Amino acid sequence: MLERETPPIGTMSAQIGQHLGTRIVSGEFTPGDLLPVENDLCQFYGVSRTTIREAVKTLAAKRLVDVSPKVGTRVLPFADWNLLDRDVLSWRLNAQFDSKIVEDIFEMRFCFEPRASFLAAREGTAEDYGLIEHHFQALASSYGPDGSPEAASQADLEFHLAVINASHNGLFVTIGTALKSALRVSSRLIQRESTQPIADLDLHEAVWTAISRREPQQAAGAMEKLLHAARARVLPFTVGPDP
């Protein structure tokens, strides 16, 4: 029998949507499973039918579940999930930060961030370059005596997003925004365990230098090297996916 539990943040329907979504992406409910019936969920969370329906409606919009009056609320196959949805990605990272999801994220980043760097070098404006330089300098400062891993991770995140935005490719910008949670988590891990700040800065500086000199090929290559180094730093802190 379900034990009552109240999620911690946001509006009540958002809290319940987050909690149910996390239970789904963590594997507690697997594709094909039916969620508990509405009455049981109302009792479990201590809320009204309207609140439960709003939460389930949110999950359905993210393609995690399908609602059928005759069948109930069924968890959809993994292939149907909206994996670029900010909430779905965040729930997966928090519930199951394993080597598979890290590899998936970096494979995607390899597909578009070097090209975004290429485009930033070719299409970027003076304002774009000013932002990229600003975040690079913030990263450099974060390694100083008054810096911190938190400041470094934020500067690293903003540096990558500024490069993506400078590409002026709307789809890249959208993907970058969707991946913001993943970028934040990986940046935090990288900077928390950073033992070679000078090497980190050299890799970032190579990207910035190539972009500012409008050297597209060099910018793409420099970003690829930076991503390889970042992946190598993050993977040791993950676990293997469940068999």
Rank of each mutant, 00 (worst) to 15 (best):
T11D: 08
A14L: 12
I16E: 00
G21M: 01
R23Q: 11
I24G: 07
V25W: 09
E28M: 08
T30V: 15
L34Y: 00
P36V: 13
V37T: 12
E38Q: 14
N39S: 12
L41N: 03
Y45F: 14
V47R: 13
S48V: 00
T50L: 07
T51R: 14
I52H: 04
E54R: 11
A55N: 07
V56W: 02
K57D: 13
T58L: 07
A60D: 10
V67D: 04
V67N: 05
P69N: 04
K70Y: 14
V71M: 01
V75D: 10
F78W: 15
D80T: 00
W81F: 02
R86K: 09
D87C: 02
R92S: 03
A95S: 10
A95W: 02
S99Y: 13
K100L: 13
V102N: 06
I105N: 01
E113N: 08
E113D: 11
E113Q: 09
R115H: 14
R115T: 12
S117E: 11
L119C: 04
A120S: 15
E123L: 12
L131G: 12
H134P: 10
F136T: 06
Q137Y: 07
A138Q: 10
A140F: 06
S142I: 02
Y143L: 11
Y143E: 15
P145D: 13
G147V: 08
G147Y: 03
G147C: 03
S148A: 04
S148Y: 08
E150H: 02
S153P: 00
E158T: 00
F159D: 04
H160L: 04
H160K: 12
A162M: 03
A162I: 01
V163A: 07
V163L: 04
S167K: 00
H168C: 02
N169G: 04
L171H: 15
F172C: 01
T177L: 12
L179G: 02
S187R: 14
I190V: 09
E193I: 01
Q196C: 04
D200N: 07
L203W: 00
W208G: 00
Q218S: 15
A220H: 05
M223H: 09
M223K: 13
A229D: 05
R233K: 11
V234N: 03
V239D: 15
G240W: 10
